[in-house]
């Protein structure tokens, strides 16, 4: 049986995929990824931080399709296929976060400002182990994120 593990602890693939962040109690500022020792808003260096789940939907700020393989540590894909990186603006958090485009989506359909939703992709496979990463999938006309 295949073991499926998230590539980083602040991405939770199940029951529905979410990115974990932190939020300052005093300023309301969000911090992502949640790996810093303290809040980074200089207006409140000592504020307490709570673990939060970031919005699962956002709008495309920009995107690009890469036509050359990235160097390690990005997992090599054999055969190489162009891969797309999407920058997504989260309205409530007022931040932009990058992510790979979900499998099977034609990047030719992407538009700046279009709505996308968090999904799960396989970053790397070794033996019976799959490493999972967050991806962005366009929200369909029916308003659902797809598969």
């Amino acid at each position: 049986m295949t073991e499926r593990v998230p590539a980083v602890e602040w991405f939770r693939p199940t029951p529905e995929p979410v990115l974990l962040g932190r939020r300052g109690r005093r300023t309301g500022t969000y911090f992502f990824p949640p790996t810093d020792a303290a809040g980074r808003n200089p207006a409140a260096p000592d504020e307490e931080l709570d673990e939060v789940v970031l919005s699962r939907r956002g709008r495309i700020w920009s995107w690009t399709t890469n036509h050359y393989p990235a160097p390690p540590p990005f997992p090599a894909r054999d055969p190489f296929r162009p891969y797309t990186v999407v920058a997504v603006e989260l309205a409530a958090e007022r931040l932009v976060v990058l992510g790979l485009l979900a499998d099977g989506v034609d990047p030719g359909t992407l538009r700046v400002g279009a709505e996308v939703e968090l999904d799960v992709g396989v970053l790397d496979r070794t033996g019976d182990r799959e490493e999972l990463v967050w991806t962005w999938r366009p929200v369909t006309a029916a308003g659902e994120g797809g598969t």
Binding site: W63, P73, F74, L98
Partner: peptide, 14 residues
């Protein structure tokens, strides 16, 4: 690089 393959030209392109 590990999670996204986000090379420098990726950012220039964004």
């Amino acid at each position: 690089f590990r999670l996204l393959g986000a090379t420098n030209p990726t950012y220039f392109a964004l």
